[in-house]
Amino acid sequence: MVPSVELKMLTANDRELIEYARQVIDANTDAGPDEDGAHTMGAAVRDADGRMFAGVNLYHFTGGPCAELVALGTARSNGARNITTIVAVGNHGRGVVGPCGRDRQVLFDYHPGIRVLLPTAAGLRAATIEALMPFAATWTIENGTQEFDEARFA
C-alpha cells in the first residue's frame, strides 16, 4: 500500500522559520539576480525547544553541501538534538524550495518525523519526511541499509 501524503497548513512558527531562512540567504548570497554563485540557498531548522538555526549552501562541482545539511550541522554544533522542522529558501526572492533527494534521505535517516516545509500545487505546506519518502529504507552507520519498516509510515 502506498503511504498517503498528508499536507498540513503552515503555522505562525513555520512562517517565522521561512522568514529567518530568507533573511539569512539574502544577507549572505554571493550572486546577483542573474548570476551563479556558491551561496544561493539558505535553510533554517527549528528544534523542540523552539530555537532556530540557519545555514547556507556551498555549491561545488564535487557536490558541496546543501543549505539544509549546513543548517543541521549548525544546529547540532549549538546543542540542538531534536530537530522538528526544516525549510530551504532561494536567494533573490525565489521562495521556498523542497529538499533534494540526498537531503531527503539524510532527513529520513537522522530525523524521523521531521516536518518539511515545501511548495505544492496548493501553496506552501508541511509534510513529514516519511510522506516524502514512500517505501524508503533507513540507513544507519552501524548496520548500513535496513529492511523496509512499515511501522515508520503508519
Rank of each mutant, 00 (worst) to 15 (best):
R15Q: 15
E16K: 15
L17S: 04
I18M: 04
I18A: 02
E19T: 11
E19L: 08
Y20H: 13
A21E: 00
A21K: 03
A21D: 01
R22A: 10
R22S: 10
R22H: 05
R22Y: 03
R22D: 08
Q23G: 09
Q23N: 14
Q23C: 05
V24F: 06
V24K: 02
I25W: 01
I25Y: 01
D26E: 15
A27M: 07
N28C: 04
N28S: 09
N28H: 15
T29N: 13
T29L: 02
T29A: 05
D30A: 05
D30C: 07
A31T: 07
A31L: 06
G32F: 07
P33M: 05
P33G: 02
P33H: 06
D34N: 14
D34T: 10
D34P: 03
E35D: 15
D36H: 09
D36S: 10
G37D: 08
G37P: 12
A38R: 15
A38D: 12
H39C: 05
T40F: 05
T40H: 03
T40S: 09
T40M: 11
M41N: 11
M41L: 12
G42H: 04
G42T: 09
G42A: 09
A43E: 00
A44Q: 00
V45R: 00
V45F: 00
V45Y: 00
V45A: 00
R46T: 12
R46W: 01
D47V: 08
D47R: 13
D47L: 07
A48Q: 10
D49A: 12
D49P: 05
G50Y: 02
G50R: 04
G50C: 03
G50V: 04
M52Q: 06
F53V: 03
A54S: 13
A54P: 00
G55I: 04
G55C: 02
N57R: 09
N57K: 09
L58R: 14
L58T: 13
L58F: 10
Y59L: 08
Y59R: 14
H60F: 06
F61N: 11
F61E: 14
F61Y: 13
T62H: 14
G63C: 07
G63T: 12
G64V: 12
G64N: 14
P65E: 08
P65H: 10
C66R: 15
C66L: 03
